[in-house]
Simulated scan of single mutants.
Amino acid sequence: MSANPAIENHGELVSLDPLVNLLADDMKAVNAMILQRLASDVPLIPELAGHLIAAGGKRIRPMMTLAGAQIAGGSAHAVGLATAVEFIHSATLLHDDVIDESNLRRGRDTANALWGNEASVLVGDFLFARAFELMVEAGDITVLGQLANASARITEGEIKQMTIAGMPDTPQDAYFDVITGKTAILFAAAAAAGAELAGANDDDVAVMHDYGLQLGLAFQIMDDAMDYGVSSSSMGKNTGDDFIDQKITLPVILAWQDGGANDREFWQRTMGDGNFTDGDLATAQAILASHDAIDRSIAIAGDYANAAIAALSRLSSPGQSQMPIIAALAAAARFSAARQN
């Protein structure tokens, strides 16, 4: 996969590193709180949850909370709220892997592959409960409402994804509705909640919500494009998982819309009917390439990344002290549509 030409970087930084570096101390505190709040008299809980969380990942959702708080000057409760966001995300991953029957996550065996579905679902429930404890401790009812609503929207997004599974003729609007709920809404709520907690005005809270939403859409579209175009070792999951799981994503929708009768027959047999044979993934990749569906999807991700950057320009009179975090958020947006993993 090549760099995304749709990103208006003009020589500007395309990296998550500035955000990671600026938030390093707070993220150390988040990681410490994660370990503290995983404590339980039931040893399986910290063991199973710790397996997933120790696998790492970019931790970009809790970073959204910390960055949102920094935009408004910071908050003593930002670390706890960022931990809650990571617990919400981790709980959804545990549940997703059970639903998808996945056996690889971030390059490691999934929790359900090691401990079984029942344990994974119950530990996911435990993480949701811990998240809501932390949200209550933040002491802001508006923030609690934002993240509670996001948690409900995530579940709705996952259910909507199930309803379009195996339907390669799904319209783009339905796909974007799914990824807004299952992915982008938590990015948005995390960023907005951090700003709200730190006392930002309503306009700036709305800006951070919009930034997070556009960033989350770019991330998910790139994930969906990479499923067909990046090696398993780079992704930390099996190449073609979405294909085998009959998940309808943007590249397939674009190829279906542009395809002739033979292409559509292939998509219906495989992703529609679940009738797979040897070599079908390679055929799918060839069809996608013939319609430029991967690169077109990446270009759309770039459009959302640019929209995230544009949102930052609407922040009300940021001071000099906010300039580094704003620049880091812009670099993270460019990264979201140019990453390889």
Score class of each variant (00 low, 15 high):
residue 177 D to Y: 10
residue 193 A to L: 09
residue 134 L to P: 05
residue 204 D to R: 05
residue 172 Q to L: 11
residue 124 G to M: 11
residue 164 I to K: 00
residue 133 E to D: 10
residue 124 G to K: 05
residue 195 A to W: 07
residue 106 R to G: 04
residue 193 A to P: 03
residue 172 Q to N: 06
residue 204 D to K: 05
residue 144 L to A: 09
residue 128 F to L: 14
residue 201 N to C: 15
residue 120 S to H: 10
residue 204 D to F: 15
residue 100 D to M: 10
residue 153 R to Y: 07
residue 140 D to H: 12
residue 153 R to F: 03
residue 164 I to F: 10
residue 168 P to H: 04
residue 198 A to G: 02
residue 206 A to R: 15
residue 121 V to H: 05
residue 103 N to D: 15
residue 202 D to S: 15
residue 178 V to T: 06
residue 170 T to C: 08
residue 93 L to P: 03
residue 104 L to N: 03
residue 140 D to S: 02
residue 197 L to Y: 12
residue 147 L to N: 01
residue 183 T to L: 01
residue 107 G to E: 02
residue 169 D to W: 14
residue 102 S to Y: 13
residue 97 D to Q: 02
residue 143 V to G: 00
residue 163 T to H: 11
residue 161 Q to E: 10
residue 108 R to D: 10
residue 117 N to C: 04
residue 158 E to K: 02
residue 188 A to I: 13
residue 103 N to E: 14
residue 208 M to P: 06
residue 83 T to K: 11
residue 110 T to S: 08
residue 131 A to M: 04
residue 146 Q to H: 13
residue 86 E to H: 03
residue 205 V to K: 14
residue 188 A to C: 06
residue 132 F to D: 00
residue 134 L to H: 07
residue 208 M to V: 13
residue 132 F to H: 05
residue 200 A to S: 06
residue 108 R to E: 13
residue 121 V to F: 00
residue 137 E to A: 15
residue 196 E to P: 04
residue 182 K to W: 09
residue 145 G to K: 05
residue 162 M to V: 14
residue 94 L to D: 06
residue 177 D to L: 12
residue 168 P to S: 05
residue 203 D to A: 15
residue 126 F to N: 01
residue 134 L to C: 08
residue 89 H to T: 05
residue 205 V to Y: 07
residue 197 L to K: 05
residue 122 L to Y: 12
residue 169 D to H: 13
residue 190 A to Y: 12
residue 161 Q to V: 10
residue 113 A to C: 01
residue 98 V to T: 09
residue 152 A to R: 14
residue 150 A to L: 04
residue 164 I to P: 01
residue 193 A to Q: 07
residue 132 F to L: 06
residue 130 R to G: 01
residue 116 G to P: 06
residue 136 V to A: 14
residue 111 A to H: 05
residue 189 A to D: 02
residue 98 V to M: 09
residue 177 D to I: 08
residue 122 L to E: 01
residue 192 A to F: 09
residue 100 D to A: 08
residue 169 D to P: 08
residue 133 E to F: 09
residue 189 A to N: 02
residue 115 W to L: 04
residue 124 G to W: 07
residue 183 T to W: 08
residue 127 L to F: 11
residue 158 E to L: 02
residue 196 E to H: 13
